[in-house]
């Protein structure tokens, strides 16, 4: 499998393409960094079991919610404001322990194994977590510096460049985030969870 297409003989590979070996094992072509990286994916299922959350004042955030999701699924949470969409996401992210019920990753309780499991989850909150006076490149470099202080500045910059190319933002790295082309800022935002977490 290359991307979403099954390949029998040969296929042309572009930067950022993925080659699927197994359900949980993928190779990602990262030619700008001159490497092919292996990605493994461990989490098969996410299960929410009777999750109820009440805020301090007795206000109900979530009431007895259960569902389960398997890998490869793209899921939308809809609802009017105040219906608990953000609360649900924070519970799934491991940031808000529900009053009762639990979240299970591969059948293991998220809140009982929070230290081990939280690394598998990336959460992009609603507030814009970037400085709109800085450029896209500067913002990401800043996020990377906080998350990966052990890497040298050169290493961080190199990884960043590769990620920007992958997101189609290569030529926009010096653009100020708050510039009129908000779409690109948003595209960056979409990529942020993967970039800043993984650099």
């Amino acid at each position: 499998m290359v991307g979403d297409e099954a390949v029998r003989t040969t296929a042309q590979l572009k930067d950022g393409d993925t080659i699927r070996i197994d359900v949980g094992q993928v190779l990602r072509c990262n030619f700008s960094e001159r490497i092919i990286e292996e990605e493994r994916n461990i989490i098969r299922t996410l299960e929410v079991n009777e999750v109820t959350h009440r805020f301090g004042k007795g206000e109900i955030g979530l009431e007895g919610i259960s569902f389960s999701i398997t890998r490869g699924e793209l899921v939308c949470v809809m609802g009017a404001s105040g219906s608990g969409k953000s609360t649900l996401l924070r519970v799934l992210a491991g940031q808000l322990q529900p009053t009762s019920g639990d979240v299970f990753l591969n059948g293991q309780s998220l809140y009982q194994n929070l230290d081990a499991l939280k690394h598998y989850v990336s959460y992009m909150p609603q507030q814009d977590a970037f400085d709109e006076h800085l450029t896209i490149g500067e913002n990401l470099l800043f996020a990377a510096a906080i998350r990966a202080p052990h890497l040298s500045r050169r290493d961080r910059t190199r990884r960043l460049d590769a990620k920007l190319v992958e997101l189609g933002l290569g030529e926009r790295r010096d653009a100020v985030v708050g510039s009129p082309e908000k779409q690109n800022a948003e595209r960056w935002r979409a990529g942020n969870a993967s970039t800043s977490d993984s650099i």
């Binding site: 990602r28 996401l89 799934l92 990753l105 690394h119 598998y120 959460y123």
Partner: peptide, 12 residues
């Protein structure tokens, strides 16, 4: 890169 298996986006 690409360590996370679960991604959560709030109102992207």
């Amino acid at each position: 890169i690409g360590m996370s298996d679960v991604y959560l986006f709030d109102e992207p």
